[in-house]
Design a protein around this nucleic acid. Sequence first.
DNA 1: GCGTACATGTAATGTGTTACATGATTGA
DNA 2: TCAATCATGTAACACATTACATGTACGC
Lengths: 181, 181
Amino acid sequence: MALEHAILVSLDERSGSGYELAQRFEKSIGFFWAATHQQIYRTLKRMVELGWVSRHEVAQDGRPDKKVYEVADAGRAELARWLASPSEPETLRHDLSVKIRGASLGDAAALTGEIARHRDLHAERLDVYLAIEKKDFPDPSALSGRRLHQYLVLRGGVRAERALVEWCDEVLAAMREDDRR
Amino acid sequence: MALEHAILVSLDERSGSGYELAQRFEKSIGFFWAATHQQIYRTLKRMVELGWVSRHEVAQDGRPDKKVYEVADAGRAELARWLASPSEPETLRHDLSVKIRGASLGDAAALTGEIARHRDLHAERLDVYLAIEKKDFPDPSALSGRRLHQYLVLRGGVRAERALVEWCDEVLAAMREDDRR
DNA sequence: GCGTACATGTAATGTGTTACATGATTGA
DNA sequence: TCAATCATGTAACACATTACATGTACGC
Protein backbone atom coordinates (compact mmCIF):
# COMPACT_ATOMS: atom_id res chain seq x y z
CA MET A 1 0.00 0.00 0.00
CA ALA A 2 3.04 2.28 -0.03
CA LEU A 3 4.59 1.94 -3.46
CA GLU A 4 2.40 4.87 -4.50
CA HIS A 5 3.90 6.91 -1.69
CA ALA A 6 7.47 5.97 -2.51
CA ILE A 7 6.77 7.06 -6.10
CA LEU A 8 5.24 10.34 -4.92
CA VAL A 9 8.31 11.08 -2.78
CA SER A 10 10.62 10.28 -5.67
CA LEU A 11 8.62 12.29 -8.23
CA ASP A 12 8.48 15.20 -5.84
CA GLU A 13 12.27 15.24 -5.70
CA ARG A 14 12.29 15.17 -9.50
CA SER A 15 9.68 14.50 -12.19
CA GLY A 16 10.44 11.67 -14.59
CA SER A 17 9.27 8.80 -16.76
CA GLY A 18 8.38 5.30 -15.61
CA TYR A 19 11.69 4.12 -16.95
CA GLU A 20 13.61 6.74 -14.99
CA LEU A 21 11.67 5.85 -11.85
CA ALA A 22 12.51 2.19 -12.35
CA GLN A 23 16.18 3.16 -12.39
CA ARG A 24 15.87 5.13 -9.18
CA PHE A 25 14.28 2.05 -7.64
CA GLU A 26 17.42 0.12 -8.60
CA LYS A 27 19.51 2.50 -6.52
CA SER A 28 18.81 5.39 -4.09
CA ILE A 29 15.13 4.93 -3.23
CA GLY A 30 15.48 1.21 -3.96
CA PHE A 31 17.86 0.90 -1.01
CA PHE A 32 14.79 0.90 1.21
CA TRP A 33 11.89 0.19 -1.13
CA ALA A 34 12.20 -2.39 -3.89
CA ALA A 35 10.09 -2.28 -7.05
CA THR A 36 10.34 -3.60 -10.59
CA HIS A 37 9.43 -1.68 -13.72
CA GLN A 38 6.22 -3.71 -14.14
CA GLN A 39 4.99 -2.66 -10.71
CA ILE A 40 5.92 0.93 -11.40
CA TYR A 41 4.11 1.12 -14.76
CA ARG A 42 1.00 -0.47 -13.31
CA THR A 43 1.01 1.81 -10.29
CA LEU A 44 1.63 4.97 -12.33
CA LYS A 45 -1.39 4.12 -14.48
CA ARG A 46 -3.57 3.85 -11.38
CA MET A 47 -2.14 7.06 -9.93
CA VAL A 48 -3.06 8.98 -13.09
CA GLU A 49 -6.64 7.67 -12.73
CA LEU A 50 -6.68 8.81 -9.10
CA GLY A 51 -5.43 12.24 -10.13
CA TRP A 52 -2.33 11.97 -7.93
CA VAL A 53 0.06 12.56 -10.81
CA SER A 54 -0.21 14.19 -14.23
CA ARG A 55 1.32 12.76 -17.37
CA HIS A 56 2.60 14.53 -20.46
CA GLU A 57 4.26 12.93 -23.43
CA VAL A 58 7.64 14.19 -24.44
CA ALA A 59 8.97 13.58 -27.95
CA GLN A 60 12.68 12.88 -28.20
CA ASP A 61 14.87 12.55 -31.23
CA GLY A 62 16.78 9.35 -31.73
CA ARG A 63 14.90 7.83 -28.81
CA PRO A 64 11.40 6.55 -28.12
CA ASP A 65 8.95 9.11 -26.78
CA LYS A 66 8.63 9.11 -23.04
CA LYS A 67 5.80 9.87 -20.66
CA VAL A 68 6.87 12.22 -17.92
CA TYR A 69 5.00 12.12 -14.63
CA GLU A 70 4.64 14.99 -12.20
CA VAL A 71 3.03 15.12 -8.75
CA ALA A 72 -0.39 16.79 -8.81
CA ASP A 73 -2.04 18.67 -5.92
CA ALA A 74 -4.13 15.63 -5.02
CA GLY A 75 -0.93 13.61 -4.87
CA ARG A 76 0.70 16.07 -2.52
CA ALA A 77 -2.40 15.99 -0.33
CA GLU A 78 -2.37 12.19 -0.27
CA LEU A 79 1.31 12.20 0.63
CA ALA A 80 0.71 14.61 3.52
CA ARG A 81 -2.18 12.45 4.74
CA TRP A 82 -0.06 9.30 4.59
CA LEU A 83 2.92 10.91 6.30
CA ALA A 84 0.71 11.82 9.26
CA SER A 85 -0.85 8.35 9.54
CA PRO A 86 0.79 5.67 11.71
CA SER A 87 2.41 2.64 10.11
CA GLU A 88 3.47 -0.65 11.61
CA PRO A 89 7.04 -1.94 11.42
CA GLU A 90 7.41 -4.18 8.40
CA THR A 91 6.79 -7.86 8.96
CA LEU A 92 10.05 -9.70 8.54
CA ARG A 93 10.80 -12.40 6.01
CA HIS A 94 14.35 -13.46 6.59
CA ASP A 95 15.27 -16.47 4.50
CA LEU A 96 18.71 -16.94 5.95
CA SER A 97 17.37 -17.13 9.51
CA VAL A 98 14.94 -19.87 8.51
CA LYS A 99 17.84 -21.74 6.94
CA ILE A 100 20.06 -21.40 10.00
CA ARG A 101 17.23 -22.56 12.22
CA GLY A 102 16.90 -25.64 10.03
CA ALA A 103 20.66 -26.12 9.61
CA SER A 104 20.83 -29.51 11.33
CA LEU A 105 18.50 -30.96 8.67
CA GLY A 106 20.78 -30.27 5.73
CA ASP A 107 24.36 -29.91 4.54
CA ALA A 108 26.15 -27.71 7.10
CA ALA A 109 29.10 -26.91 4.84
CA ALA A 110 26.86 -25.69 2.02
CA LEU A 111 25.02 -23.47 4.48
CA THR A 112 28.13 -21.85 5.90
CA GLY A 113 29.20 -21.14 2.33
CA GLU A 114 25.87 -19.45 1.74
CA ILE A 115 26.19 -17.39 4.93
CA ALA A 116 29.68 -16.31 3.89
CA ARG A 117 28.28 -15.23 0.52
CA HIS A 118 25.60 -13.14 2.22
CA ARG A 119 28.22 -11.65 4.51
CA ASP A 120 30.16 -10.46 1.48
CA LEU A 121 27.04 -9.11 -0.24
CA HIS A 122 26.20 -7.05 2.84
CA ALA A 123 29.80 -5.87 3.18
CA GLU A 124 29.66 -4.70 -0.44
CA ARG A 125 26.46 -2.77 0.13
CA LEU A 126 27.93 -1.26 3.27
CA ASP A 127 30.89 -0.03 1.23
CA VAL A 128 28.55 1.53 -1.34
CA TYR A 129 26.64 3.37 1.39
CA LEU A 130 29.81 4.54 3.12
CA ALA A 131 31.17 5.83 -0.19
CA ILE A 132 27.97 7.81 -0.80
CA GLU A 133 28.09 9.14 2.73
CA LYS A 134 31.66 10.33 2.31
CA LYS A 135 31.08 11.86 -1.12
CA ASP A 136 27.64 13.42 -0.80
CA PHE A 137 27.49 14.28 2.90
CA PRO A 138 31.02 15.24 4.00
CA ASP A 139 29.74 17.60 6.71
CA PRO A 140 26.59 16.09 8.29
CA SER A 141 26.29 18.74 11.02
CA ALA A 142 25.66 21.39 8.34
CA LEU A 143 22.70 19.54 6.80
CA SER A 144 19.05 20.56 7.09
CA GLY A 145 15.66 19.83 5.55
CA ARG A 146 15.51 17.53 2.57
CA ARG A 147 19.25 16.90 2.44
CA LEU A 148 19.30 16.00 6.14
CA HIS A 149 16.43 13.55 5.59
CA GLN A 150 18.27 11.87 2.74
CA TYR A 151 21.35 11.57 4.91
CA LEU A 152 19.40 10.06 7.81
CA VAL A 153 17.84 7.40 5.62
CA LEU A 154 21.29 6.53 4.29
CA ARG A 155 22.49 6.23 7.90
CA GLY A 156 19.76 3.64 8.43
CA GLY A 157 21.17 1.65 5.54
CA VAL A 158 24.69 1.88 6.95
CA ARG A 159 23.55 0.69 10.38
CA ALA A 160 21.45 -2.15 8.95
CA GLU A 161 24.18 -3.49 6.66
CA ARG A 162 26.83 -3.20 9.36
CA ALA A 163 24.62 -5.14 11.79
CA LEU A 164 24.11 -7.85 9.15
CA VAL A 165 27.82 -8.19 8.40
CA GLU A 166 28.65 -8.47 12.10
CA TRP A 167 25.87 -11.01 12.63
CA CYS A 168 27.05 -13.17 9.72
CA ASP A 169 30.56 -13.09 11.19
CA GLU A 170 29.22 -14.17 14.58
CA VAL A 171 27.21 -17.00 13.01
CA LEU A 172 30.15 -18.21 10.91
CA ALA A 173 32.54 -18.21 13.87
CA ALA A 174 30.10 -20.12 16.08
CA MET A 175 29.18 -22.68 13.43
CA ARG A 176 32.79 -23.36 12.51
CA GLU A 177 33.70 -23.73 16.16
CA ASP A 178 30.80 -26.17 16.57
CA ASP A 179 31.97 -28.13 13.53
CA ARG A 180 35.41 -28.54 14.99
CA ARG A 181 33.99 -30.38 18.02
CA MET B 1 8.38 -19.27 -1.83
CA ALA B 2 9.69 -20.06 1.63
CA LEU B 3 6.67 -20.20 3.91
CA GLU B 4 6.60 -23.94 3.18
CA HIS B 5 10.16 -24.20 4.39
CA ALA B 6 9.56 -22.19 7.53
CA ILE B 7 6.64 -24.53 8.30
CA LEU B 8 8.81 -27.59 7.65
CA VAL B 9 11.48 -26.29 10.02
CA SER B 10 8.87 -25.58 12.68
CA LEU B 11 7.08 -28.92 12.26
CA ASP B 12 10.39 -30.73 12.39
CA GLU B 13 11.07 -29.18 15.79
CA ARG B 14 7.60 -30.29 16.88
CA SER B 15 4.51 -31.62 15.06
CA GLY B 16 1.31 -29.65 15.53
CA SER B 17 -1.97 -28.34 14.15
CA GLY B 18 -2.45 -25.34 11.88
CA TYR B 19 -3.67 -23.40 14.87
CA GLU B 20 -0.57 -24.24 16.90
CA LEU B 21 1.64 -23.29 13.98
CA ALA B 22 -0.15 -19.96 13.69
CA GLN B 23 0.71 -19.30 17.31
CA ARG B 24 4.38 -20.13 16.77
CA PHE B 25 4.33 -17.64 13.89
CA GLU B 26 3.14 -15.00 16.35
CA LYS B 27 6.26 -15.54 18.43
CA SER B 28 9.51 -17.55 18.05
CA ILE B 29 9.58 -18.39 14.32
CA GLY B 30 7.47 -15.28 13.64
CA PHE B 31 10.39 -13.12 14.83
CA PHE B 32 11.96 -13.66 11.43
CA TRP B 33 9.14 -14.99 9.25
CA ALA B 34 5.64 -13.52 9.50
CA ALA B 35 2.52 -15.49 8.53
CA THR B 36 -1.17 -15.35 9.34
CA HIS B 37 -3.39 -18.34 10.01
CA GLN B 38 -4.99 -18.02 6.57
CA GLN B 39 -1.64 -18.35 4.85
CA ILE B 40 -0.72 -21.29 7.06
CA TYR B 41 -3.94 -23.26 6.45
CA ARG B 42 -3.69 -22.70 2.71
CA THR B 43 -0.05 -23.70 2.60
CA LEU B 44 -0.56 -26.81 4.76
CA LYS B 45 -3.27 -27.97 2.36
CA ARG B 46 -0.89 -27.65 -0.57
CA MET B 47 1.90 -29.36 1.37
CA VAL B 48 -0.32 -32.38 2.05
CA GLU B 49 -1.04 -32.59 -1.68
CA LEU B 50 2.68 -32.47 -2.40
CA GLY B 51 3.30 -35.20 0.15
CA TRP B 52 5.65 -33.02 2.21
CA VAL B 53 3.61 -33.46 5.39
CA SER B 54 1.12 -36.03 6.64
CA ARG B 55 -2.09 -35.14 8.44
CA HIS B 56 -4.00 -37.11 11.05
CA GLU B 57 -7.11 -35.99 12.86
CA VAL B 58 -7.03 -36.00 16.62
CA ALA B 59 -10.28 -36.01 18.61
CA GLN B 60 -10.26 -33.98 21.81
CA ASP B 61 -12.86 -33.77 24.53
CA GLY B 62 -14.28 -30.39 25.36
CA ARG B 63 -12.52 -28.95 22.32
CA PRO B 64 -12.89 -29.05 18.55
CA ASP B 65 -11.00 -31.83 16.81
CA LYS B 66 -7.65 -30.82 15.44
CA LYS B 67 -5.58 -31.88 12.46
CA VAL B 68 -2.02 -32.59 13.43
CA TYR B 69 0.66 -32.25 10.77
CA GLU B 70 3.96 -34.09 10.69
CA VAL B 71 6.91 -33.79 8.31
CA ALA B 72 7.04 -36.63 5.77
CA ASP B 73 10.17 -38.00 4.08
CA ALA B 74 9.47 -35.99 0.93
CA GLY B 75 9.26 -32.89 3.12
CA ARG B 76 12.62 -33.61 4.70
CA ALA B 77 14.11 -34.13 1.25
CA GLU B 78 12.65 -30.83 0.02
CA LEU B 79 14.00 -29.03 3.07
CA ALA B 80 17.49 -30.44 2.48
CA ARG B 81 17.30 -29.38 -1.18
CA TRP B 82 16.20 -25.86 -0.25
CA LEU B 83 18.85 -25.48 2.46
CA ALA B 84 21.56 -26.21 -0.10
CA SER B 85 20.17 -23.80 -2.71
CA PRO B 86 21.29 -20.16 -2.73
CA SER B 87 18.86 -17.38 -1.79
CA GLU B 88 19.04 -13.67 -2.32
CA PRO B 89 18.87 -11.16 0.54
CA GLU B 90 15.30 -10.03 1.04
CA THR B 91 14.24 -6.96 -0.86
CA LEU B 92 13.59 -4.19 1.60
CA ARG B 93 10.32 -2.38 2.15
CA HIS B 94 10.91 0.15 4.86
CA ASP B 95 7.93 2.43 5.33
CA LEU B 96 9.54 4.68 7.87
CA SER B 97 12.48 5.44 5.58
CA VAL B 98 10.11 6.49 2.80
CA LYS B 99 8.34 8.76 5.28
CA ILE B 100 11.56 10.34 6.50
CA ARG B 101 12.69 10.90 2.93
CA GLY B 102 9.39 12.73 2.31
CA ALA B 103 9.38 14.51 5.67
CA SER B 104 9.57 18.03 4.24
CA LEU B 105 6.24 17.46 2.47
CA GLY B 106 4.20 16.87 5.60
CA ASP B 107 3.82 17.62 9.27
CA ALA B 108 7.29 17.27 10.82
CA ALA B 109 6.02 17.07 14.40
CA ALA B 110 3.64 14.21 13.58
CA LEU B 111 6.48 12.35 11.92
CA THR B 112 8.90 12.69 14.83
CA GLY B 113 6.10 11.37 17.05
CA GLU B 114 5.78 8.39 14.76
CA ILE B 115 9.53 7.78 14.77
CA ALA B 116 9.56 7.93 18.57
CA ARG B 117 6.75 5.36 18.63
CA HIS B 118 8.74 3.03 16.38
CA ARG B 119 11.79 3.54 18.55
CA ASP B 120 9.81 2.35 21.57
CA LEU B 121 8.37 -0.62 19.69
CA HIS B 122 11.86 -1.74 18.69
CA ALA B 123 13.17 -1.19 22.23
CA GLU B 124 10.36 -3.40 23.51
CA ARG B 125 11.19 -6.17 21.07
CA LEU B 126 14.85 -5.87 21.96
CA ASP B 127 13.94 -6.36 25.63
CA VAL B 128 11.92 -9.45 24.76
CA TYR B 129 14.84 -10.94 22.82
CA LEU B 130 17.34 -10.10 25.56
CA ALA B 131 15.07 -11.71 28.16
CA ILE B 132 14.85 -14.89 26.08
CA GLU B 133 18.61 -14.87 25.59
CA LYS B 134 19.24 -14.57 29.33
CA LYS B 135 16.67 -17.20 30.29
CA ASP B 136 17.10 -19.83 27.57
CA PHE B 137 20.75 -19.43 26.65
CA PRO B 138 22.65 -18.49 29.82
CA ASP B 139 25.86 -20.16 28.64
CA PRO B 140 26.22 -19.66 24.86
CA SER B 141 29.71 -21.18 24.63
CA ALA B 142 28.29 -24.55 25.69
CA LEU B 143 25.71 -24.67 22.89
CA SER B 144 25.84 -26.90 19.84
CA GLY B 145 23.64 -28.18 17.01
CA ARG B 146 20.01 -27.22 16.99
CA ARG B 147 20.21 -25.18 20.21
CA LEU B 148 23.17 -23.24 18.88
CA HIS B 149 21.28 -22.46 15.67
CA GLN B 150 18.27 -21.19 17.61
CA TYR B 151 20.58 -18.99 19.65
CA LEU B 152 22.30 -17.57 16.58
CA VAL B 153 19.00 -16.62 14.95
CA LEU B 154 17.96 -14.90 18.17
CA ARG B 155 21.27 -13.01 18.11
CA GLY B 156 20.29 -11.72 14.68
CA GLY B 157 17.08 -10.36 16.16
CA VAL B 158 18.98 -8.69 18.99
CA ARG B 159 21.41 -7.04 16.58
CA ALA B 160 18.67 -5.91 14.18
CA GLU B 161 16.46 -4.39 16.89
CA ARG B 162 19.40 -2.71 18.59
CA ALA B 163 20.47 -1.16 15.28
CA LEU B 164 16.92 0.11 14.71
CA VAL B 165 16.65 1.66 18.17
CA GLU B 166 19.98 3.41 17.75
CA TRP B 167 19.04 4.63 14.28
CA CYS B 168 15.70 6.03 15.50
CA ASP B 169 17.58 7.86 18.26
CA GLU B 170 20.00 9.33 15.73
CA VAL B 171 17.14 10.43 13.47
CA LEU B 172 15.18 11.98 16.34
CA ALA B 173 18.19 13.90 17.66
CA ALA B 174 19.07 15.26 14.20
CA MET B 175 15.50 16.24 13.31
CA ARG B 176 14.92 17.99 16.63
CA GLU B 177 18.20 19.83 16.27
CA ASP B 178 17.15 20.88 12.75
CA ASP B 179 13.78 22.09 14.07
CA ARG B 180 15.45 24.31 16.64
CA ARG B 181 17.24 26.26 13.89
C1' DG C 1 -24.22 -12.68 29.09
C1' DC C 2 -19.43 -11.48 27.44
C1' DG C 3 -14.89 -12.14 26.22
C1' DT C 4 -11.21 -15.29 25.34
C1' DA C 5 -9.08 -19.46 23.78
C1' DC C 6 -9.49 -23.28 20.74
C1' DA C 7 -10.00 -24.73 15.89
C1' DT C 8 -10.74 -24.37 10.82
C1' DG C 9 -11.93 -22.45 6.95
C1' DT C 10 -13.97 -19.39 2.35
C1' DA C 11 -14.09 -15.28 -0.66
C1' DA C 12 -12.65 -11.09 -2.54
C1' DT C 13 -9.25 -8.13 -3.41
C1' DG C 14 -4.63 -6.31 -3.70
C1' DT C 15 0.31 -6.95 -4.72
C1' DG C 16 4.30 -9.05 -6.49
C1' DT C 17 6.81 -12.01 -9.75
C1' DT C 18 7.98 -14.01 -14.12
C1' DA C 19 7.74 -14.43 -18.78
C1' DC C 20 6.78 -12.51 -23.01
C1' DA C 21 6.60 -8.68 -26.51
C1' DT C 22 8.21 -4.64 -29.32
C1' DG C 23 11.36 -1.51 -31.42
C1' DA C 24 14.96 2.31 -32.10
C1' DT C 25 19.87 3.86 -31.30
C1' DT C 26 24.74 3.55 -30.03
C1' DG C 27 29.21 1.68 -29.45
C1' DA C 28 32.60 -2.37 -29.57
C1' DT D 1 26.48 -7.96 -35.97
C1' DC D 2 25.87 -8.31 -31.27
C1' DA D 3 25.02 -6.48 -26.88
C1' DA D 4 23.53 -2.71 -24.17
C1' DT D 5 20.61 1.28 -23.24
C1' DC D 6 16.35 3.64 -23.75
C1' DA D 7 11.31 3.15 -23.38
C1' DT D 8 6.76 0.99 -22.55
C1' DG D 9 3.79 -2.36 -21.92
C1' DT D 10 0.48 -7.20 -21.51
C1' DA D 11 -0.64 -11.65 -19.44
C1' DA D 12 -0.57 -15.31 -16.32
C1' DC D 13 0.24 -16.78 -12.12
C1' DA D 14 1.63 -16.77 -7.23
C1' DC D 15 1.16 -14.91 -2.90
C1' DA D 16 -0.62 -11.81 0.84
C1' DT D 17 -4.22 -9.25 3.15
C1' DT D 18 -8.74 -8.37 4.89
C1' DA D 19 -13.13 -9.46 5.94
C1' DC D 20 -16.38 -12.74 6.81
C1' DA D 21 -18.13 -17.26 8.74
C1' DT D 22 -18.90 -21.01 12.23
C1' DG D 23 -19.02 -23.40 16.56
C1' DT D 24 -17.63 -25.23 21.50
C1' DA D 25 -15.97 -24.55 26.23
C1' DC D 26 -14.62 -21.97 30.16
C1' DG D 27 -14.21 -18.40 33.52
C1' DC D 28 -15.85 -13.90 35.28
